[in-house]
């Protein structure tokens, strides 16, 4: 078997598994109960799915100009996906979009209460 054929097979494997992971992320978006659990789906299988698709595309293209762009896409995806998840989670946190009944413990609520209490004390003093 030639090297090209091996690379093509690896690329096909990467592309298909990446697509399947992205599909799973989509299913998770529909099926998960609340905003924060959905953000998990957007942050993990989606990122790995994209990385695998990028690797597959890179193995098929095999030209320097395209591969460097793919590398950049991967790096920025890794760097920005957690930030996006953080921003969405933080914006949605105190609202009803989050199922409090599914939470075992919530230490952020206590923290926010304390911060609010300190602000009140400072305003009173």
């Amino acid at each position: 078997m030639s090297l090209d054929a091996v690379l093509d097979i690896v690329a096909a494997f990467c592309l298909i598994s990446g697509a399947l992971l992205s599909l799973a992320a989509g299913v998770a978006l529909v099926r998960f109960p609340d905003l924060l659990t959905r953000m998990h789906a957007a942050a993990k299988p989606q990122v790995l799915g994209l990385l695998l698709v990028l690797v597959g595309a890179g193995l098929r293209l095999r030209t320097g100009v395209d591969v460097t762009t793919l590398v950049l896409v991967g790096i920025f995806q890794l760097a920005t996906a957690p930030v996006a998840a953080h921003m969405v989670g933080r914006a949605g946190y105190p609202q009803d979009d989050i199922r409090g009944d599914l939470l075992l413990t919530d230490e952020l609520a206590a923290h926010l209460d304390r911060v609010a209490g300190e602000r009140e004390d400072a305003a009173r003093a």
């Binding site: 924060l36 993990k44 299988p45 790995l48």
Partner: peptide
């Protein structure tokens, strides 16, 4: 960890009749 995480979430998404529970910790 990234691979394990993705497989875990994918499995949670496809698993029938299961609502994952979660927690917020500091």
């Amino acid at each position: 960890d990234l691979v394990v995480a993705s497989v875990q979430i994918a499995w949670l998404a496809l698993r029938p009749r299961h609502i994952p529970r979660s927690a917020i910790i500091a």
